[in-house]
C-alpha cells in the first residue's frame, strides 16, 4: 500500500482532482474538448518544466529559464522586424539560447560554482539583453501569419500546442530514459564524484543539460509569441516558479526523489487542471494560488509519510 502511494500517489491525486472537477462541473470541465484544451493550456509551462527536469537530473537548478522565455519571444520579433524569415529567425533564437545554456553549464561544472548563483547571474544578463533589444517595450507587429500558426489552431484534431508538448516530452523522455546520455546525466545527479571516477565527463554532460533547458525555454518564448501575437520583455516571468513546482510535484511521482519526464508532465497537468477547474467554477484567482500551493505541500508530505511507513 505504501509502495503504491509512493509510486502512483501523485498520479492518483491528478485523477482524483479531475474526477472531482468533472462531478462539480460535468458540462464545462468534464467535456472532452475542455480536457483536450487543458493539454494546450499546460504546454508552455510543461515545456519549461521539462527543461528544468533535465537540469535537475544532473542535480542542478536553472534559474535563468524565465529570462530565456522572455528573451526568446523578444528576439524572434526583433528578427522579424529586421526582415529575417521566420524559420531562420527561430533557429537563430534557439542557437542564441544554446549559447547561454552552454555558458551556464560550463561555469557550473568547470568552476564548480553553485548553479543557483551562476544561472541567476546569466539570467540577469539575459534580462538586460532582452530589455536592450526591445528598449523595454512590448513588441507587436511584423509577425508573419504562418509563424503565428505554430502556436494556435489545431492539427489532426489536437491543438497545435499539444503536438509540441507531445514532441518535446517524447524527445526528453528518450534523452533521459532511453539513450546513453541520460544514464550519464542521472549518474552525475545521483553521485557526481562516483560518476566522475567511473569515467563520466562532468563538464560536457552538464553543459548538455543546461543547453537543453535553455533551448526549451527559448522554444517556449517563440511559441508564446506565436500564441499571443506579441512579445513582452517580462512575458516569461511567471514560468520559473510554476515550472519548478511542476518538477517537484513530478519528483514525488513514479521515482524516488528523482526528476523525471512523466512525473513532470503529471505535475504540470495538476497545476493546469487546478487553474482550469477553479476558473470554470468561478473561484477567485487568489484562492487558486492558495490551493495550488497547498496541493504541492500535501503531495510532498504524503510521499514522506509513505516513505516512513515503508
Amino acid at each position: 500500500m505504501t509502495g503504491f502511494v509512493r509510486r502512483f500517489g501523485t498520479l492518483a491525486a491528478l485523477v482524483i482532482i479531475i474526477i472531482a472537477f468533472s462531478i462539480a462541473s460535468p458540462g464545462a470541465f468534464g467535456s472532452p474538448s475542455n480536457l483536450i484544451n487543458i493539454t494546450q493550456q499546460m504546454t508552455l509551462l510543461a515545456i519549461v518544466a521539462i527543461g528544468a527536469t533535465v537540469v535537475m537530473a544532473v542535480g542542478e537548478f536553472d534559474l535563468s529559464t524565465a529570462s530565456i522565455v522572455s528573451f526568446g519571444g523578444i528576439l524572434v520579433v526583433f528578427l522579424f522586424k529586421v526582415g529575417v524569415p521566420a524559420p531562420i529567425a527561430c533557429l537563430a533564437v534557439l542557437a542564441a539560447a544554446a549559447v547561454f545554456g552552454a555558458v551556464s553549464g560550463f561555469v557550473v561544472s568547470r568552476f564548480e560554482v553553485l548553479s543557483f548563483i551562476a544561472t541567476l547571474a546569466v539570467g540577469t544578463i539575459i534580462g538586460g539583453i532582452t530589455f536592450w533589444l526591445c528598449e523595454g517595450a512590448t513588441l507587436f507587429g511584423n509577425i508573419p501569419a504562418e509563424f503565428r500558426d505554430i502556436g494556435r489552431g489545431t492539427m489532426l484534431g489536437l491543438p497545435t500546442l499539444t503536438w509540441w508538448l507531445i514532441g518535446v516530452a517524447a524527445c526528453a523522455w528518450i534523452i533521459l530514459d532511453k539513450v546513453e546520455i541520460g544514464r550519464r546525466l542521472y549518474a552525475i545527479g545521483g553521485n557526481r564524484e562516483a560518476a566522475r571516477l567511473a569515467g563520466v565527463r562532468i563538464v560536457p554532460n552538464t553543459m548538455f543539460a543546461f543547453i537543453v533547458s535553455a533551448v526549451l525555454s527559448a522554444l517556449v518564448g517563440i511559441l508564446l509569441t506565436a500564441r499571443i501575437g506579441s512579445a513582452n520583455p517580462t512575458g516569461g516571468g511567471g514560468y520559473l516558479l510554476s515550472a519548478y513546482a511542476a518538477v517537484f510535484l513530478g519528483m514525488t511521482a513514479f521515482r524516488e526523489g528523482e526528476a523525471n519526464v512523466p512525473g513532470t508532465l503529471v505535475g504540470a497537468a495538476i497545476i493546469a487542471v487546478i487553474g482550469n477547474g477553479l476558473t470554470i467554477l468561478g473561484v477567485s484567482t487568489f484562492l487558486q494560488d492558495i490551493i495550488t500551493g497547498t496541493i504541492i505541500l500535501a503531495a510532498v508530505l504524503v510521499r514522506r509519510a509513505g516513505k516512513q511507513g515503508a
Binding site: 475542455n34 493550456q41 508564446l224 517580462t234 511567471g238 476558473t279 470554470i280
Partner: peptide, 25 residues
C-alpha cells in the same frame, strides 16, 4: 458573470487562458 485578477508578468496569456476557461463555463 465572472471576473479574473490578471497576473503580471504575462497578462496576455493569463487573460487568454482565463477567458478560455470562462467561455467553457
Amino acid at each position: 458573470i465572472a471576473d479574473h485578477f490578471v497576473k503580471v508578468p504575462g497578462p496576455v496569456d493569463d487573460g487568454r487562458v482565463a477567458m478560455e476557461n470562462i467561455l467553457r463555463q
